[in-house]
Every structure is written in structure tokens, then in C-alpha cells.
Design a binder for these strands. Structure first.
Lengths: 343, 343
DNA sequence: GGGGACTCTGGGAGCGCTCCCAGAATTTGT
DNA sequence: ACAAATTCTGGGAGCGCTCCCAGAGTCCCC
């Protein structure tokens, strides 16, 4: 009751080697399809591994390779945001798919408040993961700065508001998207186009405001008193829309920098007796997959593909991990417009 | 240039011990606050660890303890579902919080199609995690059956349609919630209450249908020709509602087994010229945080708290991991009704 | 005061793997 | 034909940690 791969224990490399009649070294080489293994040995080892149901012990492997085979996906946004916005679900899902295809595991971490930062940093520098994907840091988020000090490969999603030199970033063309929204509204004959902005400490919100401004200025139209800040929420959008209606009762279109804010704006417009889109046309941003089509009328919105973003991020990180020299910088992804009934 | 914790490398336990002037064993004991360490040694070791910025090598630790300190969260639902439904985001977030508090890491895995099952099983039995939380398996999902063969502690969220003997499950009171919805509609004087069901291979959808039936039968009201299957989507709900209006034009209320279906139903009702809630009252299920309040009128819906569910699941898993004898079975969590304008 | 308990410590072994190195087997070149 | 390269193999070391064990020190109670 002593020899052989015992019944209850998981077989080790040594067991596989013994079963195959080769040494541990040869078995290891065969399994990692390293150079210098005879095809006969390789075959016999692979057969042994299959017969015993062998799967390598990841802990033992990392101990010597100093690689964990895992990557952290860090979502740095307040809880409410992460929960409501399907963007994050799409990011998680896409990251999982891409990482799995590359044979890596995905560890998920949320950073809701500043209090979570030290713990996250400690974990990240604890050597549990080979690299990190960090999504949506807003201005003043201490995470990017702290991460720069770590010697851990990191790729950011969404331009961090703070320093951005020497870091890898994949972002959407927020400014271009906002311009696209305004140009669409101009195209359907609107000339008094207001905007409900996101919180302006958020780089994306800022860029969307800039895009709106640029397009209106280029068209020679008025921007004064035509913008009001929401906070990316329905209630914020509703409140902002009421302000705008008060300040500019003659407005004939509104660009909301997020879909929930667009929904709030629509509510305020209906309450004020305006018809959508006849009296006031509405365009949102993000193309919220559940919300935008469910609105009445369905919401026209700027569409961005989170999968493309996370795919780019993962590929960049994997290149970094492989030691390929990747030039730091920001990659900007294009957006499109999803036309529905509201504009 | 040889001795001491070298500048670039991460310090090891040996380094900490040397710095503190104790043995590796004592350092280990102090750090794991094990029994039998003098308070002086503990202090000096902790100080050394802090000074050197020591953090233990998880791989080395797992190698000997045969524990990884990580748990897999497995979401077994088709991609579209996971992406649109904030329920899953809440589950992930809640799981992360609870696991972090227990000092564990969370590995996230998605199982979209049957093809993903073997890979998932292989991973789970590969010893990468200490246990698994598996959410929302539907009837015929091969995952639960396959997992039973593994000697890996698993806790399910949402009753799997297949065998449920000997497994740990935490579910919501779907039947009770549906009953609650119907009773609310009865309470506001409705008597011809239709339902739009989810796909009936889904245990939750089935339970919600049963609850609706029970409540109507108990009230002595008609159920014939008053139910129609959607598929948990907006379009399905819209189509089902049109059928119901055709079959039972005199209906005065509808209970939809999900919020997107409720949104679809509302669209069909408005298209048919019915006023909500005057002509037809609408109740949804899930209390979708973005969708329900954004509807016009805002949607009354059955509320369930995903955090409570995942919290229960994590606590059960941790007890299992600790070797506490937990009786297998299903824990049913209560739901409530969120009253808004639609009913 | 002496024996039996506790409290604390350090060294050794070993978890399962990969890498290095020396040597055996095989091929190639002249 | 023999030397030199090349292919392949097995053993040893060691990654950083925890656990076991033996032993030293300390306390207490009869």
C-alpha cells in the first residue's frame, strides 16, 4: 500500500514519468513541448498523462517559473456605476474570453472607494498575478499613479485623468462620438442643440462635452447656456433637462452624455409637454443594450464596442508579458451611431 | 553584492527572519499568528516584514498547504443574458466583497455554451481553486451533474433544473414573488390577470408561472388562455403581449416574469391604445435597477437582493472549506415588491 | 527540590515542478 | 574510418513556504 500513484491523491509528474518509463525531466519536456524530446518519448508521456488524468500543479510551476498564469481585471468605479452599466459586464466577459484563449486565468477586483486602493496595490504587488487590466479610472483616481511604481505590466481602459505618460491605454473616441451625435442632429435640421454632460472630473464626460462644443462652434451655433451637468444618472439627467428647458425654452434637440441621463431627459421633456422627436430630438451615449431599445420612443445613441476595447487591452498586455517592446501610448477606438426613434 | 535581501528581488521569509534575528520557523509562526510565539518575537518579525515590504509567496504556500486561497465564480448563462442583466454584475460585486473580507481571491469564469463545459470542468478539477460558486444553471445544464463527480466544494445559486439532492443551493422565492405580484394586482381591484412567462426550461420561470397560477386559483379566477411564453427578452414580451391581447382583450393586468418582458409588454399595450395603469396594470420581476425606474410609467416590480444571495452562498462555501459539516439543501430567500407607477 | 507539565525555538524534510548540467546515444562531416 | 557536432536523457539542485520533531527554557505544584 505504498507505491504507485495512490488512489486518492492527484498524480504528480513523477507518477506520469514512472508510468511512461522515463525520467521526470523527459516527462516535463514532453508535457511542455520543449525542444529535444524524441517523438517516441513524447507520445508515451502524453499517453501516460491521459491515462492517469494528470494535470500539472500550478503552484509548483509558478514557484519556479515566477509566473502565475493569471491576470487581474481591476474595475475602478463606484459600486453603483459598475452594477448598473452593462458596459462593465461586457468588459468582464470579453476579458475572460480573450484571456482564456491565451491560456490565462482572470482574477476580478473591484475598487469602489479610495479605501480599497491600498489593499488592491498590496495584492497586485504581492506577485499573485502577472499583469493587470485596469478599467475606467476617473480623474484623481490614485490607482494609476500608484501602479506606475509597481513593476507590474498594466494596461488601462479609458484615459485616466491624471498623468498618462508612459502608460498603455485603450480608449474610445468620446469626442468624435459627441461630434457625430451633434452632426446627426444638425443633419435632421436641428439648430438649438443642448447637452446634458457627465461629471466633469470624468475624462470621458469632458471629452464628450468638448465634442459637442466643437461641432456646434464649427456650425456657427450657440453653445452658451446650452449645457448642464448631470451625473450620469437618470435623476441627474431629468434635473439637468428641467434646467435647460427653463434657460432655453426654444431648444429643439439634446445630446445626453449617457443613456440613463437621456432617459431622465426624456422624462422631463414629456412632463413639459414636448413631443419626442417632433419637438425635441434626443441622442444618448453608450447604446445601453437594455435601456436604449426599451425607451419610448427607442433611443438613438452613440454605440461603442466594449469587446473591441478589452480585446485590444488584453492583446497589449499579453505582448507586454511576452516581453515584446510595445510603445506606451493611447489607442483610440472608433464609435458609431445607432439610429432609433428618438432622433 | 551577494548577501542580504537583494535590491531588485522580493524579500523571502528567510530575509525577514534574518532581519529580525530569528529563525524561518519563528518568522512563519509570527506571520501566520500561530500558537507558541513569544510576543517579543512576533513584534520583531512583524516589524521586519513591514520594513522589508514582505508579502508571502502564494505559490510556495499553496504548494505545501494544498490550498490556493482562491474561489471560482462560475456564471453559467448564455452571453446575452449575462451582459444585459445587472443581476450578474451585482452577484460578481457581492462575491468579490465577501471573498475579499475572508481573505480569498475570486476567479471569474463564464460558461456560455455547452462547449465551454469540459474546459471549465478540467480547470475546476485542476486544483487551481479551493471551491466554486456556480450561478443560475438552467434545466439540462450539464454543469451541476459534472460537478458532483468532482471532490470540490460547490455552492449553487438558483435551483438547477436537474438533480438537486446532496447539493448546496441558495435561491429566491420565485413562486412567492409571483404570488405577491398577483396579490398586489388583486388588491388594486384587477381580476383578469394575464402573465408573460420566461422560457419554461428555466426553473425560475417555471416557479414564477406556478406562483401566478396558485394565486389566481386561490382567488377563484380564470387562468385559461391567460399565459404566454416570452423568452425573458423585450421582443419576446412584446410578442407575447400581442398574443394575449388578441386572446383575452378584456384583460386588466399583466404579470411579466422579467422586467425586459414587462417593457415589451408595455410597448405592445401602448401600441394597442391601452393606458397604463388605468386600463392595464403591469408588474415585472427582478426590479432591474436601470430599466424599471426609467420606464414610463415607472415599473412596479418584484425585488430580489442578489447580494443577499451571493452572501449566503459565500458563507456556505467558506463553512464547507473550513470543514464545518453543512447540511446540503436549498435555502430560499424572501423577495419584496417595489411599487411604482405601473401598478 | 525534583518531576511533569507547559512555552518557545531552530533545523530538517519535502510539497511538485522547472532548469541546469553532464553524459549517453545518434547523426553528420571529412 | 574517426572526430565533431547534434539530439536526447536522467539526476541534482532549488524555488519559498509550512509542518514535524527534537530540544531548550520556563513555570508550577506536590
Amino acid at each position: 500500500m505504498a507505491a504507485g500513484p495512490s488512489q486518492d491523491e492527484r498524480p504528480t509528474l513523477e507518477d506520469v514519468a514512472a508510468y511512461a518509463g522515463v525520467s521526470r525531466s523527459t516527462a516535463s519536456r514532453a508535457l511542455n513541448d520543449d525542444a529535444y524530446v524524441s517523438s517516441r518519448s513524447r507520445e508515451v508521456v502524453l499517453a501516460a498523462a491521459a491515462a492517469l488524468g494528470y494535470s500539472p500543479n500550478q503552484a509548483a510551476r509558478s514557484l519556479v517559473t515566477k509566473r502565475t498564469g493569471a491576470v487581474a481585471l481591476v474595475l475602478s468605479e463606484p459600486e453603483s456605476k459598475v452594477l448598473d452599466d452593462p458596459y462593465f459586464a461586457a468588459i468582464m466577459h470579453g476579458a475572460f474570453r480573450e484571456l482564456t484563449a491565451a491560456g490565462m486565468q482572470m482574477l476580478l477586483m473591484f475598487v469602489d472607494t479610495r479605501d480599497d486602493v491600498p489593499r488592491t496595490i498590496r495584492f497586485l504587488e504581492g506577485g499573485h498575478v502577472d499583469g493587470a487590466l485596469v478599467v475606467a479610472p476617473h480623474k484623481g483616481d490614485p490607482l494609476p499613479t500608484a501602479l506606475r511604481l509597481l513593476r507590474l505590466p498594466v494596461v488601462f481602459g479609458g484615459r485616466p485623468g491624471t498623468i498618462s505618460r508612459g502608460i498603455h491605454t485603450v480608449d474610445f473616441d468620446n469626442q468624435g462620438g459627441a461630434r457625430m451625435a451633434v452632426e446627426h442632429l444638425l443633419g435632421i435640421g436641428r439648430t438649438r442643440i443642448a447637452t446634458v454632460t457627465g461629471p466633469l472630473d470624468h475624462p470621458a464626460a469632458r471629452d464628450r462635452l468638448t465634442g459637442w462644443e466643437d461641432a456646434l462652434v464649427a456650425a456657427g451655433l450657440r453653445i452658451e447656456a446650452m449645457s448642464e451637468s448631470g451625473d450620469f444618472t437618470l435623476e441627474g439627467g431629468e434635473r439637468a433637462m428641467r434646467c435647460l428647458l427653463h434657460r432655453a425654452p426654444d431648444l429643439d434637440a439634446v445630446f445626453a452624455a449617457s443613456d440613463p441621463m437621456a432617459a431622465g431627459a426624456m422624462r422631463a421633456l414629456i412632463a413639459a409637454g414636448r413631443q419626442i422627436p417632433q419637438d425635441v430630438a434626443v441622442v444618448g451615449f453608450d447604446d445601453h443594450p437594455t435601456l436604449a431599445p426599451a425607451m419610448n420612443p427607442p433611443l438613438t445613441s452613440i454605440h461603442q464596442d466594449p469587446r473591441e476595447q478589452i480585446g485590444n487591452m488584453v492583446r497589449t498586455l499579453i505582448a507586454l508579458l511576452a516581453g515584446d517592446p510595445v510603445r506606451p501610448g493611447t489607442k483610440i477606438l472608433p464609435v458609431s451611431i445607432a439610429r432609433r426613434g428618438s432622433a
